[in-house]
Simulated assay, not measured.
Amino acid sequence: MNSEDGAPLRVEGVSVDIAGRRIIDGISLSAQSNIVGVVGPNGSGKSTLLRAIYRMLRPAEGHVFADGRDVWTSSAREVARVTAAVVQDNPADLELTVADCVATGRLPHGRLFAAGRSGDAGIVESAMRATSVADLANRQISTLSGGERQRVQLARALAQEPRILVLDEPTNHLDIRHQLQLLTLVRELTVTTLVTLHDLNLAAAYCDEVVMLERGRVVASGTPCEVFTPEHLRRVFGVHAASLINPLTGRLQLAFADEDDRQPTDRITR
Rank of each mutant, 00 (worst) to 15 (best):
A115H: 15
A115Q: 15
A115Y: 12
A115N: 13
G116Q: 05
G116I: 02
G116V: 04
G116R: 10
R117E: 14
R117M: 08
R117W: 13
S118P: 07
G119V: 12
G119I: 10
G119M: 09
G119Q: 12
D120A: 13
D120Q: 14
A121I: 08
G122W: 05
G122M: 11
G122H: 12
G122C: 05
G122N: 14
I123L: 15
I123C: 08
I123G: 00
V124I: 11
V124F: 09
V124R: 02
E125K: 07
E125A: 14
S126C: 07
S126W: 13
S126H: 14
A127K: 03
A127M: 08
M128G: 02
M128K: 01
R129K: 15
A130F: 02
A130E: 15
A130R: 15
A130D: 14
T131R: 07
T131G: 11
S132G: 00
S132I: 00
S132D: 13
S132K: 04
S132T: 01
V133L: 10
V133H: 09
V133R: 11
V133T: 14
A134R: 09
A134Y: 13
D135N: 10
D135Y: 04
D135E: 13
L136M: 10
A137Y: 07
A137F: 06
N138M: 11
R139V: 08
Q140I: 08
Q140Y: 13
Q140L: 14
Q140V: 08
Q140T: 11
Q140F: 14
S142L: 07
S142G: 05
T143Y: 07
L144D: 06
L144A: 06
L144N: 03
L144F: 05
S145E: 00
S145G: 01
S145Q: 00
S145R: 00
S145H: 01
G146E: 05
G147P: 05
G147M: 07
G147S: 09
E148F: 07
R149L: 06
R149H: 05
Q150K: 11
Q150A: 12
Q150F: 08
V152S: 03
V152M: 04
Q153E: 04
Q153M: 15
Q153T: 06
Q153S: 10
L154C: 06
L154Y: 08
L154P: 03
A155N: 05
A155I: 11
A155Y: 09
A155G: 09
A157I: 00
A157P: 04
A157D: 03
A157V: 04
A157N: 03
L158M: 12
L158R: 02
L158E: 01
L158K: 00
L158V: 03
A159K: 03
A159P: 00
A159Y: 00
A159N: 01
A159L: 04
A159W: 01
A159H: 00
Q160Y: 06
